[in-house]
Simulated assay, not measured.
Amino acid sequence: MELLRMVGMVLASFFGVRKRANHEADLAKVNMVLLPFVAVALALMIGLLILGVVELIVNGTSSAQGF
């Protein structure tokens, strides 16, 4: 459950949709040693997801034109 709390906290931080009170409450309960690893892993996953979507769009449109 703590991992899900960290994931939610990191995602909210990435997108900037967190109230100060909720943020401070989560900081008091979270394991600060694992937090940077979760943040880096989520950033990597989001980057790979964006890269995958771009690859699908680029490769999908080029084959649809018959080239």
Rank of each mutant, 00 (worst) to 15 (best):
Leu44Lys: 15
Ala39Thr: 13
Ile50Asp: 10
Met1Glu: 03
Asn31Asp: 09
Gly66His: 04
Val58Thr: 12
Gly47Ala: 10
Asn31Ser: 06
Asn59Cys: 05
Lys29Tyr: 04
Thr61Leu: 15
Ile57Gly: 12
Arg5Phe: 01
Ile50Pro: 04
Lys19Thr: 12
Gly47Leu: 05
Lys29Pro: 00
Gly52Gln: 10
Gly8Tyr: 04
Val38Thr: 04
Gly8Ile: 01
Val10His: 02
Ala39Arg: 15
Phe15Asn: 09
Asn59Ala: 09
Leu34Arg: 13
Ala25Leu: 07
Val53Asp: 08
Leu44Gln: 15
Ala12His: 05
Ala43Pro: 11
Leu27Met: 14
Val17Ser: 07
Ile50Arg: 11
Asn22Pro: 02
Arg18Asn: 03
Ile57Ser: 14
Ile46Pro: 03
Leu34Pro: 00
Ser13Thr: 08
Val30Lys: 03
Ser62Asn: 08
Gly60Cys: 04
Val53Ala: 13
Asn31Ala: 08
Gln65Pro: 15
Ala25Pro: 01
Val7Cys: 03
Leu35Cys: 03
Gly47Gln: 06
Leu49Ile: 12
Ala12Val: 07
Val53Ile: 15
Ala25Thr: 04
Gly60Glu: 02
Met1Ile: 02
Phe37Met: 14
Glu2Ile: 10
Leu11Pro: 02
Leu4Gly: 06
Val33Ala: 10
Leu51Cys: 12
Ala25Phe: 04
Thr61Glu: 14
Ala25Gly: 04
Lys19His: 12
Gln65Asn: 15
Asp26Asn: 11
Asn22Glu: 05
Ile46Thr: 14
Gly47Arg: 04
Arg20Cys: 04
Leu4Glu: 10
Leu11Cys: 05
His23Pro: 00
Val38Trp: 06
Val10Arg: 02
Gln65His: 15
Gly66Trp: 01
Glu55Lys: 14
Asp26Val: 07
Leu49Glu: 13
Lys19Met: 08
Ile50Met: 14
Val30Gln: 04
Glu24Asn: 06
Thr61Cys: 12
Leu11Gly: 00
Leu42Pro: 03
Ala25Glu: 05
Ile46Ser: 11
Asp26Tyr: 03
Ala43Glu: 13
Ser13Met: 06
Val17Gln: 09
Glu24His: 01
Met1Phe: 05
Met6Phe: 00
Phe67Trp: 13
Asn59Arg: 13
Val38Ser: 01
Leu4Asp: 10
Ile50Gln: 12
Met6Asn: 01
Ala25Ile: 01
Ala39His: 11
Phe67His: 11
Gly52Val: 06
Val38Tyr: 04
Leu35Tyr: 02
Ala43Cys: 15
Leu4Tyr: 10
Glu2Ala: 08
Ala39Tyr: 07
Glu55Pro: 00
Val40Tyr: 12
Leu51Gly: 15
Val40Ile: 14
Gly60Ser: 09
Glu2Lys: 13
Leu35Met: 05
Phe37Asp: 13
Met9His: 08
Met9Ser: 07
Pro36Leu: 10
Gln65Gly: 15
Glu2Trp: 08
Val54Ile: 14
Val30Pro: 00
Leu51Gln: 13
Met45Thr: 10
Leu51Pro: 06
Met9Thr: 06
Met6His: 00
Gly16Phe: 03
Gly16Asn: 07
Ala39Val: 08
His23Cys: 12
Leu49Asn: 13
Val53Asn: 09
Ala12Gly: 09
Val53Cys: 08
Leu44Trp: 07
Leu56Pro: 02
Met9Asn: 06
Arg18Gln: 11
Ile57Phe: 13
Met9Gln: 06
Leu11Asn: 05
Glu24Phe: 00
